[in-house]
């Protein structure tokens, strides 16, 4: 795999940020990885540097977070100009599953910025199959 991506991880859990980051480092992707425990800070970073390293950026986004949750983040993200938005793909990384939380999950899929949903806990296989299809 030589597609080059940058990555942003947004998760209020420090452990989840760590796990996602380490899996990414081991996935042969060589783009930069930035982790945020507060979605607001990620939003500010995107606002200030909308196009990172001239390559598309994948955002791994947790949904249930204090302060600004995943839904709030997407709402804010969709206010960015279209040329900024098209540089990003959002992958939801959540403990919600289509089977147990159908309303929340179908709500996520109505946002066009959202590319896919990955159910936690993360595994190497889940990450690789996501990176292949993206």
């Amino acid at each position: 795999m030589n597609k080059k991506f940058s990555f942003i991880i947004i998760d209020d859990s420090e452990l989840d940020c760590f796990v996602t980051q380490k899996f990414l480092e081991r996935s042969n992707e060589n783009g930069t990885i930035k982790a945020f425990q507060n979605a607001k800070h990620a939003l500010e970073m995107i606002r200030e540097n909308p196009i990172e390293d001239n390559c598309p950026t994948i955002i791994f986004l947790d949904l249930q977070m204090p302060f600004m949750n995943g839904f709030d983040f997407i709402e804010e993200f969709e206010k960015f100009a279209a040329e900024i938005q098209k540089n990003y793909k959002i992958a939801i990384l959540t403990i919600l599953s289509p089977a147990n939380n159908p309303t929340d999950v179908s709500k996520i899929l109505t946002y066009k910025a959202v590319n896919s949903i990955i159910e936690k806990p993360l595994t190497k296989e889940k990450l690789l199959s996501f990176l292949i299809q993206v």
């Binding site: 452990l15 806990p121 993360l122």
Partner: peptide, 18 residues
């Protein structure tokens, strides 16, 4: 409860790679 649990599970999955 499920949040930290799934984090720990993710970490156990990762442990194989570390």
């Amino acid at each position: 409860i499920r949040g930290p649990l799934s984090g720990i599970l993710g970490a156990i999955n990762l442990a194989n790679e570390i």
